[in-house]
Nucleic acid binder design. Sequence first.
DNA 1: TCATTTCCGTTGGAAAAACAACATACCGAT
DNA 2: ATCGGTATGTTGTTTTTCCAACGGAAATGA
Lengths: 226, 226
Amino acid sequence: MEKYVPVLKRAKLFSDIGDDEILSMLDCLNATIRQYGKGEYAFRQGEFIHDLLILGSGRLHIQKEDYWGNLNILNEIRPGEMFGEAYIVPNSGTLMNDVIAAEESAVLFFDMERILTVCPSACPFHTRLVKNMFYTISDKNKSLVQKLSYMSQRSTREKLLSYLSDEAKRQNSSSFSIPFNRQQLADFLSVDRSAMSNELCKLRNEGMLDFHKNEFTLREPPQGHH
Amino acid sequence: MEKYVPVLKRAKLFSDIGDDEILSMLDCLNATIRQYGKGEYAFRQGEFIHDLLILGSGRLHIQKEDYWGNLNILNEIRPGEMFGEAYIVPNSGTLMNDVIAAEESAVLFFDMERILTVCPSACPFHTRLVKNMFYTISDKNKSLVQKLSYMSQRSTREKLLSYLSDEAKRQNSSSFSIPFNRQQLADFLSVDRSAMSNELCKLRNEGMLDFHKNEFTLREPPQGHH
DNA sequence: TCATTTCCGTTGGAAAAACAACATACCGAT
DNA sequence: ATCGGTATGTTGTTTTTCCAACGGAAATGA
């Protein structure tokens, strides 16, 4: 169990909690480990999840298979990442996805009841843990809402403008850089790369913005333009 | 303050907590109220939020204005709903949206620090509150992830299939009803209603599914079909 | 330096979605 | 049953996106 302390130390859930405390909390939280071989299903659609899960080592894929058997990889989980936390809620129903080990992996199981039910005195860092938990989920929540606001735009142009506009706000400057190359940005916005590239250049020609590589600058559109 | 107890009682955050406890917790959590007139800005893009917010009465609109001034109503908040919780996280940056009172409204402010820091003994329902908090956010999180998985599909057809497939899983039957009419479903999936209606009928003609009104049945596609 | 690879922009044709306009079915009220 | 309103389905046109293919620029590495 000790071998995973360095991984957990970097996990948001345990930020600001020291090595010793983490180790003692693993006990307090009733943590257990399960190993999965490459290609093995860790969880299947339809299962109930009762524990908070953190990947200790390896790599997991969150996959979805629809009614007609079409497969779709939704997400890749890296060591230290928490997952499945949304399904621990009572009456949240069963898992809607499959979780499969992309390589030999170890998953840590934490008893959720113990995390949320504060122990009387044993763990002084329990409050810290609850806060981290809340912060982690809230953060995820926030980025999901933002992404959704881009994706709900109908056209590639609008998707780009809403995303870039938000980044300008977030970085508090009309000049900013983005953490994506073109292909990644296209994937993030769920559009075709070449079409997006084309649209970006149109926007530049119209004077809405400038860019080179992943440095962007938003501009006031020329007067009289619609 | 007492007048809002019935509203809070119905709020997920206070579920399973009695009237008396709610009232005493309002004190414990340092709750305050602010009133907003119709059309007044409750919060503006760029502000920091430190408190958990619940709408006591009225109606709020979450709006977004982009760099070029285009307005977009993202969400409508009803009494009892919690909002802005994602921005309480330290270093989460400032609010990305405007919040405007669509009608005369009252907003309750709760001190987040006090919610997450468990008081020694005074509030026996504090643990319940923390759980509710977690459950509420997780629930939201789950539905966001799901919606995102539909929206990230490129075509209307794929959006429909992934949504309907998920509903079949969730209701554990290939026959199920959905909580939307056509226009609402189109809005939910961010597509054009008539195009979606058209696509649904194509799918029916291909033998993939059947429906009338908001009752759907998924079917195995006929053999030999691609 | 040269070869290889990756990234980015461009183009044209095919496919799909949006849009507008209309037809039909359904529903509630009188 | 009739009327008005709403929800849904249908069709044809316009616009947009997707897709595949290509060329040049920049980065990488031998």
